[in-house]
Design a protein around this nucleic acid. Structure first.
Length: 488
RNA sequence: CGGGGAGUAGCGCAGCCCGGUAGCGCACUUGACUGGGGGUCAAGUGGUCGCGGGUUCAAAUCCCGCCUCCCCGACCA
């Protein structure tokens, strides 16, 4: 027996409404739900335990996936000698504007003979180091990954989405053949899709980047693109195939079965703490966060309700009869005994997006039940404590599924099909979302879209589609079916 | 990095124009009554006024330099 809550708009009062100002809403939620803060050092953030715990859940999930397929974690240096950094011309050109340099060191701040770059990504240090470990075709594939932070000197920053330092994983793999390397890039993209969809409950478009959006130095870049609730797209993970570009620059080669020297084929791929921002912007509402159960630091919060020592003791005893069962069942839960009023606690945990709250008072103890309230609809349901752990696991699975369904519906409602640049320009004057259209493949036409439609870019190319129509810009025969969007 | 705005208690702000030794709300502490959606009352704690320099008998207030944050642009996971 479920009862609807009449008015649910204003339960959490300390967050700017999403509809009033999405950017302020986002910042309010990230800070007030205790995910992260600015540090006072320009562009550098502090990730707080509640935010980091979500990243930890993502790390665990992804780390399990790559271990399963034979990848190994390494640690490579933070600082990259200039001579290494500059070897792959296209790559350097792409990253040069945002590299931070160490030029002085020691007590006397002595000038270094060779400046050291703080890694913006590690291709250029891993390349020259990994070649030591690759001699023969028997040493391949080399499937490496590292969990670390990197520094990119961004001019404008946003919590989780763009900061001068961010935490991520960067995978770097080396293969004996192009086919195998391309397969690797595709395998990882599938993992990224799973992280986004199965774990974060964010549906994504999966495809290839246009040349203009391809990672510097890559032959091609694969991407997963999510849609945030303000209609902007967010790149949630990329996987790059390098061909032999990096192997050539760093002479990463091996002896094949015929004892001939051959260059490796390599890939790299990454997902970052940006995904925590994605989860906020894809699921949040005017009351704050809504956290997908699979990555939720707290899946179930218990709010005891009592009025004196006697009822407090009674409620405490009652709660202790079933929390061990929750623990055994792997339900991440917390009992909130803080000395606050129940209403405060409700608002607090709603802002933090905890999927399920259990209100437990003396009445419930007598009845052998709890009052279950779920975060999306705030529906209240009386649930007997017999079999509570199983029930909660079912509810959490259901919550995860509904969150994904809701996000998928949103994505569908905000995905359009248009044929001409004029239509695209008109569309983005009014709203956001993805627009599928067809494109000839020329860089000038791509630049034209960006210029005319106010920053709209090609987010991804559908690799399976065979276009039959005309390019939206020039009207010539189209070669690619592409998804457009304004993006973060 | 260009244009605009701002830094005063943990948070949000007033005071600055017109110099005279620091204030309000929330939070916090203690106590009482309370407790199923952000309660009431009372008494308290907390500040080198972003940093450095200058002018002055005297600087949160005026002048110069720097740092940080916010908004708008160009660059980006």
């Amino acid at each position: 027996m479920k009862q609807e809550v009449e008015e649910q708009q204003d339960f959490v009062k300390e967050v700017t409404k999403m509809s009033d100002d999405f950017d302020r809403w986002y910042t309010d939620v990230v800070r007030k739900a205790e995910l992260a803060d600015w540090s006072g050092i320009r562009g550098m953030m502090v990730v707080r335990p509640y935010g980091w715990a979500m990243w930890e859940a993502i790390m665990r999930a992804f780390d399990d996936m790559i271990k399963e397929s034979g990848h190994e974690n390494w640690a490579f240096p933070l600082l990259i000698p200039r001579e290494f950094l500059v070897k792959e011309a296209e790559h350097v050109e792409g990253f040069a504007p945002e590299v931070a340099w160490v030029t002085k060191a020691g007590g006397g701040m002595e000038e270094l003979e060779e400046p050291l770059a703080v890694r913006p990504t590690s291709e250029t240090i891993i390349g020259p180091l990994i070649k030591r470990y690759i001699q023969s075709h028997r040493d391949l594939p080399k499937l490496t990954n590292q969990w670390n932070s990197v520094v990119r000197w961004e001019m404008r920053s946003r919590l989780f989405l763009r900061s001068r330092e961010f935490w991520w994983q960067e995978g770097h793999t080396f293969h004996a053949s192009a086919e195998e390397a391309m397969e690797e890039a595709g395998l990882i993209l599938g993992y990224y899709r799973s992280i986004a969809e199965d774990w974060l409950a964010v549906p994504v478009l999966v495809g290839k980047k246009s040349p203009a959006e391809t990672f510097p130095g890559a032959v091609y870049t694969l991407t997963v693109e999510g849609l945030m609730r303000d209609g902007l797209a967010l790149q949630m993970g990329t996987s790059h195939y390098f061909g032999q570009n990096f192997a050539r620059a760093y002479d990463i080669s091996f002896s094949n079965k015929e004892n001939a020297r051959e260059l490796c084929h390599s890939t790299s791929w990454g997902i970052s703490t940006r995904l925590v921002g994605a989860l906020v912007m894809a699921h949040g509402d005017d009351s704050g966060l809504v956290v997908p159960p699979r990555v939720a630091p707290v899946q179930v919060v218990v709010v005891p309700i009592f009025r004196d020592d006697e009822s407090r003791a009674k409620v405490d005893r009652f709660i202790k009869t079933w929390t061990p069962e929750l623990k055994a069942a792997g339900v991440r839960h917390r009992v909130d005994w803080r000395d606050e009023r129940p209403g405060d606690k409700y608002a607090h945990w709603e802002l933090k997006g905890v999927p399920i709250r259990l209100n437990v008072g003396a009445r419930d103890a007598d009845a052998g039940q709890v009052e279950m309230v779920e975060r999306l609809t705030r529906q209240k349901t009386g649930v007997p404590v017999a079999g509570l752990a199983d029930r909660l696991r079912k509810e959490l699975d259901e919550f995860q599924r509904r969150l994904y369904e809701r996000a998928l519906q949103f994505q569908r409602d905000n995905t359009f099909e248009l044929g001409t640049l004029d239509e695209v320009v008109a569309h983005y004057r009014e709203r956001g979302g993805f627009v599928w259209t067809e494109w000839c493949g020329e860089a000038d036409e791509e630049a034209r879209i960006k210029a005319d439609a106010g920053g709209v870019t090609i987010r991804t190319i559908d690799q399976d589609a065979k276009p039959s129509g005309k390019c939206l810009v020039c009207g010539k025969a189209a070669r690619y079916r592409v998804a457009l969007a304004k993006a973060y």
